[in-house]
Design a protein around this nucleic acid. Structure first.
Lengths: 262, 262
DNA sequence: TAACGGGATAATGTATACAATGTGGATGTA
DNA sequence: TACATCCACATTGTATACATTATCCCGTTA
């Protein structure tokens, strides 16, 4: 009856999970800080039971860490952690591409991926890529990666890739917006799109090793650009999840505890 | 005060999780079957709250699947799922070995791994390997793999490997006991131990590609032996987790291509 | 002054009552 | 007889009260 209320659409648990995730990624809950259940009850507006459920899920998601004596704290990541997570995702996507190649993909199953590729082509063709174009690139790129993953037809692998991509900075589109402000933005898109084209071609020709290798390199391109974006610190506000980075966002912060950017 | 009671040592949540996992892996809860919370309350002896916590954790662990309308059911796996999970684990361990090689491991940090290797050597040297030896092989092999994983010094990767190994049939020692009854048992151990030796050597010499490749092959050896053990169906009781396999296992499951989904 | 201990306080872990929703069966009608 | 609808029941989602444990502060003592 009253489905116009958007809050009624999802369970309290999910609402709490979304609200807490937002709080964490926005940096309003700092790394290492203990999350009080009662505090979360106040901010989310639901009772302790769904809050606890959400906390458990966020722990599995990787954003929280269980405290031995009980409760949870916001997890801290190093820059190295983030780069490793990206490479890890690349390795898994490489495996997916190899599975797809080795096991074979019918022309009909490959069709959606090719369509996605063509869509991306149109976007990349723009010479000064507009900001709106970058925004829709995020969506289309995510779609391409999702389709590619599914072509592996391996439920365990798909599951693992989803879990690895759950961390916002490890997702295939995690840093695209940050790249958009780089002077090399267009070149990066051209190269990334070439990777996309190569992996489709490799799958079509059942070249497993090639498909795997190019997906790995594709992820390393993302890692490279992240480093670039971190150095040009002009638009770090495009990287919301950066609040989770514990130590050296800057070149050398090994001795300091926490970068106190509020 | 009364710490003699072993049940007091762990929380009700953990107790419920262990009990339910046991029920699932032993096959007393069949694949696809919905898990009733109240039923679980009766079998575990704790109340609904810790039971629900345990269910959520078992879902994240991969043994349960959420039902859209609410609640959980026991997940079903195909033989292909299991083989893929093993290969996936091998790919991740391969990445760990490559990281260790590329990033370098000090002689002191490599020492525990070499000790573990020597321990395994002693065991493998026995010509008729006793059943007890196989049993301790399980422990020592797990230790070797854990040490190797840690040498990657990558928290995200270690976490992901742990999660991938959580499924009992994907763990490095998941099928060792099943192999023990095979006529080729000793040969398998010799080959596996050679893999162990090679990966240590490769890490020491910073040969990343070699280290990665051998760990992948190491996992494929496990997959091969699983197929072998499934064929010699004499001692399938050594594979408790087999109850989770949804489709073939039993009847001529070994036609090369994938068993059609139900 | 520093360190140890005890107690108060606040947090998490657990149980259970209540609310809401989905499911199944039975009954009526076409 | 088949199908649809409605009601009753069972099950899950949520809130809250209670139990237990950790933590922190303060006082005492060496």
């Amino acid at each position: 009856m009253n489905e116009r209320d958007p809050d009624r659409a999802v369970s309290h648990t999910v609402r709490a999970q979304l609200a807490l995730r937002d709080l964490i990624l926005s940096g309003r809950l700092r790394s290492g800080e203990r999350i009080s259940e009662l505090g979360a009850v106040e901010t989310t507006g639901v009772s302790r039971t769904p809050v606890r459920m959400a906390l458990v899920r966020l722990e599995e998601e990787g954003l929280l860490e269980a405290i031995p004596s009980g409760g949870f704290m916001v997890k801290a990541f190093t820059e190295r952690d983030i780069l490793d997570s990206i490479e890890l995702r690349g390795v898994l996507e490489g495996l997916a591409a190899r599975f797809a190649s080795e096991r074979g993909v019918s022309a009909r199953d490959l069709e959606p991926l090719k369509e996605s590729l063509a869509e991306l082509d149109e976007l990349v063709a723009q010479d000064p890529v507009s900001v709106e174009a970058f925004s829709s690139y995020v969506t289309m790129n995510a779609r391409f990666h999702a389709l590619l993953t599914e072509l592996s037809r391996s439920a365990p692998l798909i599951r693992q890739i989803d879990r690895a991509s759950a961390l916002p900075f490890a997702s295939p589109s995690g840093f695209v917006m940050a790249q958009s402000v780089l002077p090399e933005a267009h070149q990066i898109l051209i190269i990334a799109q070439d990777h996309h084209r190569i992996v489709v071609d490799a799958i079509e020709n059942r070249e497993g090793a090639r498909a795997e290798a190019v997906m790995r390199e594709h992820a390393r391109l993302a890692a490279r650009n992240l480093r670039l974006a971190l150095r040009n610190r002009t638009h770090l506000d495009l990287l919301p999840a950066l609040a989770l980075i514990h130590s050296p966002v800057t070149d050398e912060a090994f001795s300091s505890q926490s970068p106190r950017r509020t």
